[in-house]
């Protein structure tokens, strides 16, 4: 990492930290407690941004996969795999926090509701994407297979997003667009979304850097005269 990119990295990490502290302050102190659900509704402020950023992560995988197949530049493959990794972490958290919230609100940990099931399928799809990449040894074959999976897998993202409109589900509707949130709740949600977007960028940049380093080591080993 050269001087300028190190400075950029530290600025981004500092900004992410400040935003996360602000987000936590707003979630636990600033925003009023929901009248119907009580304190447990505060899960919403991290659950929703995590889901949105997971969608963003898989959209980045989708775009980078198309770019890889058209340009055959490994740079796009590396970014796609880094974004998928972060997307899987965030989707895992969406499923876990959703399940905890369901237990508090509905009295059950899980139900085979359209939104929940589609999200689980999304998680399995990208875990499969990462596993395929892990087990294919040859670089270009791994990138090609990954790109195809990254494009096909993205089909599930609009299904997850629209499930609440397409089917009768137990999952709450789009409160944000239906005007079901007061201004302070909306502002808190917005700050949380920005904080998680910055966290996503930091993690993808870091993971991309490591994947490039891994590739460099592989190249040195392969070109070394024994």
């Amino acid at each position: 990492m050269n001087g300028r990119s190190a400075l950029r990295h530290y600025i981004l990490v500092g900004l992410g930290f400040a935003l996360m502290v602000a987000a936590l302050y707003m979630v636990f102190i600033y925003v009023p407690t929901d009248k119907n659900m009580g304190a447990v509704q505060r899960i919403f402020y991290f659950h929703v941004p995590l889901a949105w950023i997971a969608f963003l992560a898989f959209f980045v995988v989708f775009v980078c996969s198309i770019l890889y197949l058209t340009k055959r530049d490994m740079k796009w493959d590396v970014i796609a795999s880094a974004s998928a990794e972060v997307g899987v972490v965030f989707t895992s958290l969406v499923l876990i926090t959703g399940s905890i919230w369901a237990k508090a609100a509905w009295g059950i940990w899980w139900t085979w509701d359209a939104r929940l099931t589609a999200t689980l399928v999304l998680w399995f799809t990208y875990v499969a994407y990462l596993l395929v990449r892990h087990y294919v040894a040859e670089d270009s074959q791994r990138a090609r297979l990954g790109a195809v999976l990254g494009i096909v897998g993205f089909i599930d993202v609009p299904i997850v997003a629209l499930a609440i409109m397409l089917w009768r589900t137990q999952h709450p509707g789009a409160l944000i667009f239906e005007g079901g949130l007061v201004t302070s709740m909306l502002i808190t949600l917005l700050v949380c979304i920005i904080a998680f977007t910055v966290l996503y960028i930091i993690l993808v940049v870091q993971s991309t850097r490591l994947k490039n380093m891994e590739a460099d080591i592989r190249n040195i080993k392969n070109n070394r005269p024994d």
Binding site: A39, V40, R42, F46, L50, V89, W101, A104
Partner: peptide, 25 residues
Amino acid sequence: MDNLGYLFAAYTIIWALIFGYVFFL
């Protein structure tokens, strides 16, 4: 209906997994 235990569990798991991933990197 406050269910503070669930709230605590959700936020603990969120941070545990994020820190776990950062530690892995």
